[in-house]
């Protein structure tokens, strides 16, 4: 078949209507992204349950979808969708309804600029990223923190004291940790001479986790805080404030908020892998050269996720004042020290 007969009219059409083409590509990209991250997050939820079960000497989900409980989340989703949708009488209805949607939008915004790995075709690496923008590292970090706005919307609109306390805690925590996190991203950018995530990955002949160990440590802790994982889950500490900002949410609205946390966890882990663990860099695997970057990427991602889950099962929670203390008095000064280190070393690095 003559391919040029199809390609030529298409490419001439692209030349005539570049905006429409960009829109179509964008839509396809969005569809792919939402598919990928949602399936990915479902895998994370499953992994979370299974690993947690292992750590606690129980089985985890083992009924729905074979003895591995693969379809448990599907069953949960069906349950949540079919539940009664109730909105508290005193709630600020508009904000209440929009909070889970804002949360979803946030995760999509993050996902748009995040490379999900790369394919190695003919010795050349093609990163899998929808919007390969120049400042993607900074953009992703900024977009991640919009999640806090959603948390605050949910907590504030619920007209519930637990929710309010949870929202305040989330806010205080976010402010205390976004700053050191941002400084760490800058330190990485200084070393990589770029804010583009793809270029940051490509510049990591030596992983930045080794080049700036302090930055890696601070970024990991700040990321855990940003994701609200134990020991930094004060905003939904169920033993103190029931479920924090999600207290008044039920049914699929709660499901959305809950699921966004896992999506965030996935995206945050990807960011950590990209910035500090060399992304998809790794020696070529024989026989599988095209997907060998993907294998390395997935391997690193699973290790990071496993770490996050493991800490959840084995640590107790900080008090909110201890968290903000740690953020302002230790993380921020140390992250600036790390920036100085990165600037000094970076001069010899590139």
């Amino acid at each position: 078949m003559d391919l040029s007969a199809i390609i030529e009219p298409v490419s001439s059409w692209i030349d005539q209507e570049p905006l429409i083409f960009a829109l179509i590509i964008g839509l396809i990209g969005a569809a792919i992204i939402s598919g990928v991250i949602n399936v990915g997050a479902m895998a994370v939820v499953w992994m979370d349950r299974k690993v947690m079960g292992d750590v606690q000497r129980r089985f985890g989900p083992a009924r729905v979808g074979s003895r591995w409980g693969l379809l448990q989340l599907g069953a949960d989703a069906i349950k949540l969708f079919t539940k009664e949708d109730s909105i508290p009488i005193g709630a600020d209805k508009q904000v209440y309804v929009w909070a889970p949607i804002v949360a979803s939008i946030t995760t999509m915004l993050v996902a748009a600029a995040l490379p999900f790995g790369a394919l190695n075709i003919g010795g050349k690496e093609y990163p899998l990223v929808v919007a390969n923008m120049d400042i993607s590292a900074f953009y992703v970090e900024a977009a991640l923190s919009v999640m806090t706005v959603a948390i605050f919307m949910a907590g504030f609109s619920s007209n519930n004291k637990y929710s309010l306390l949870g929202a305040f805690r989330g806010m205080a925590r976010m402010i205390a940790y976004e700053v050191p996190m941002g400084v760490c991203v800058i330190a990485v950018a200084v070393m990589a001479h770029s804010l583009n995530l793809v270029e940051i990955v490509n510049s990591q002949s030596l992983w930045y986790a080794f080049a700036q160990p302090l930055g890696f440590l601070i970024f990991t802790v700040a990321l855990m805080t940003d994701l609200g994982r134990v020991p930094f889950d004060q905003s939904e500490a169920e033993e103190e404030i029931i479920a924090g900002y999600t207290t008044e949410y039920g049914g699929i609205r709660w499901g959305l908020l809950y699921f966004q946390e896992y999506i965030n966890m996935l995206l945050g882990s990807i960011l950590l892998v990209l910035l500090f663990l060399g992304g998809w860099n790794g020696p070529n695997i024989p026989l599988l050269p095209p997907i060998s970057p993907m294998i390395w990427f997935a391997l690193k991602l699973i290790i990071v996720l496993e770490f996050l889950i493991w800490t959840r099962a084995s640590l107790v929670r900080f008090r909110i004042d201890q968290v903000t203390d740690l953020g302002w008095k230790w993380m921020l000064p140390l992250s600036i020290v790390n920036l100085a280190w990165a600037a000094a070393v970076g001069l010899y690095f590139a």
Binding site: E238, S314, R317
Partner: peptide, 10 residues
Amino acid sequence: LTLLGSATYS
């Protein structure tokens, strides 16, 4: 201990 951590504290 579950009160201090979360219900997931092993």
